[in-house]
């Protein structure tokens, strides 16, 4: 049983469980599944300034912060107690092209050649953590949602603006992964 849990879960199982989060949140308390809004709540709580966008009753959204705290705890539990002892298996063509860019270590879910503490104060860190994170935060808020709010919650409740947003997420991602990320990694090699 524990071995079954340890090996990487099939996409259909993961997709079903993630999909079920939507009705669970709706039925438990009429909550809309969405994660990027927590970033807005954190701004509203910590650094609202004089900005009208951050002047709202964030206390009503406290559940959302508990939800993401739970995600972090879940990540901790899965990685420390249920983790897969073997290396991550990625499609061969992806491995080949990443190898040419100097990414060869598949020990953990994230490439430690990029996501390590030593890289924090380097150009690599500036691009992959600071710039990348900034685009995630700015972009999701500008778009009014992320993969959870638009792609899953929006598409499943048949909202066409969410379809547009999801298509743009994918277009941006295609351009970035196929052209931008390789160029960055090449330059930093």
């Amino acid at each position: 049983m524990i071995q079954l849990i340890q090996q990487p879960w099939h996409w259909a199982i993961a997709g079903t469980l993630i999909g079920l989060t939507v009705p669970t949140l709706l039925l438990v308390g009429n909550k809309k599944f969405g994660i990027s809004s927590t970033l807005r709540h954190i701004c509203a709580i910590c650094i609202p300034g004089n900005i009208s966008f951050f002047q709202y009753n964030w206390k009503k959204e406290t559940w959302n912060l508990f939800f993401v705290a739970g995600i972090a705890i879940g990540g901790f539990i899965a990685t420390n107690f249920l983790s897969n002892p073997s290396t991550i298996v990625i499609a061969a063509p992806t491995q080949d092209s990443l190898k040419a860019l100097g990414i060869t270590n598949y020990q953990s879910l994230m490439p430690i050649q990029i996501f390590s503490m030593e890289n924090i104060f380097t150009l690599k860190g500036l691009i992959f953590f600071v710039l990348g994170g900034f685009m995630v935060g700015f972009g999701t808020r500008y778009a009014g949602g992320c993969t959870s709010g638009h792609a899953i919650m929006g598409l499943s409740s048949l909202q066409w603006p969410s379809l547009i947003a999801t298509c743009c997420f994918m277009i941006g991602g295609f351009l970035s992964a196929n052209f931008l990320v390789p160029v960055i990694l090449k330059l930093l090699q």
Binding site: I35, S36, T38, L39, V68, A69, I71, A72, I73, G74, G75, F76, A78, T79, N80, L109, M110, I127, F128, F129, L131, G132, G133, F134, M135, V136, G137, F138, G139, T140, R141, Y142, A143, G144, C146, T147, S148, H150, I164, A165, T166, C167, C168, F169, M170, I171, G172, G173, F174, L175, S176, A177, L180, V181, I184
Partner: peptide, 26 residues
């Protein structure tokens, strides 16, 4: 915003949800 987020998603390898799980994972 969608395009900007998409570009950032491929760079960081994370949308907002996984960010929290990545931190929890250490």
């Amino acid at each position: 915003g969608g395009l900007i987020f998409g570009i950032g998603w491929a760079i960081t390898g994370a949308c907002p949800g996984p960010l929290f799980a990545q931190i929890g994972s250490g």
